[in-house]
């Protein structure tokens, strides 16, 4: 199979397979979580705080007082990595074309220089948080296979995308194919790994914020 054939497979059947696996897993897990159900809350809410769940979704992204100073690498690295990843994924014109091809929505792309800088920052932040996780004995103890897998599945698409963009090999076609395949791997594994937090965090934070508000701890 030539590099171009691999690329064509990745853009066609490979993408369909990855999307199907990802969608199947996401629907399955969302459905399963929702179907677990909760007993009806018969108590009167202590405080009436509409929107507490929604506010919690945002407030949980901010560090609690004093925490940034205690774990600067975790917070700074985490912010740079997440924001940078969002810029790389949603700001690069070819990615927007893919989204347009899949869902029909589009928006203006960012200049490549900006996306490139964000990608470099993201890669650096990911390496920094990995080093932090490896060097901190507590974090290392708490880390399991799922953590290393989630990091790898996220890092490889970034690295292959960066290498493809900068033509780090004579065979650009192969790099592009590997980049798309690595994204497809990420997509297929997303629902079944800790990466599911991209979906699950919204449900979990909303529920926690809402239930806490009803008990008198409004966000």
């Amino acid at each position: 199979m030539s590099a171009l054939e691999l690329l064509t497979w990745a853009r066609g059947p490979g993408l369909a397979l990855a999307l199907a696996a990802g969608l199947f897993g996401i629907v399955l897990r969302v459905f399963e979580i929702q179907a677990l159900g909760r007993k009806g809350d018969l108590a009167t809410a202590r405080t009436i705080t509409p929107g507490s769940g929604w506010r919690t979704i945002l407030s949980r992204s901010l560090p609690p007082p004093g925490m940034f100073q205690r774990a600067p690498l975790t917070y700074a690295g985490g912010y740079v990595f997440h924001v940078g990843l969002a810029i790389a994924v949603f700001g690069f014109a070819p990615h927007i074309e893919l989204i347009r091809g899949l869902f029909g929505v589009r928006w203006p792309g960012l200049p490549n220089l900006f996306v490139d800088a964000a990608t470099v920052a993201t890669i650096a932040a990911m390496l920094a948080v990995l080093a932090g996780r490896l060097m901190d004995p507590v974090k290392r103890l708490l880390s399991g296979f799922g953590d290393w897998l989630a990091w790898t599945l996220t890092f490889v698409p970034l690295l292959t995308g960066y290498a493809a963009f900068h033509h780090m090999s004579e065979n650009y076609t192969l790099l592009l194919a590997l980049h798309i395949l690595s994204v497809e791997l990420l997509l297929a594994f997303l629902p079944f790994t800790k990466l599911f937090h991209v979906v699950g965090l919204f449900m979990a934070r909303w529920y926690n914020g809402d239930i806490a508000a009803k008990k008198g701890v409004a966000a």
Partner: peptide, 20 residues
């Protein structure tokens, strides 16, 4: 565009969602 799907993936997505 080179980054766009070469095939129609809607059918696979629909079946996957239903299976999910």
């Amino acid at each position: 565009a080179l980054s766009m799907p070469t095939a129609n993936v809607e059918k696979a997505a629909g079946i996957a969602a239903a299976a999910g």
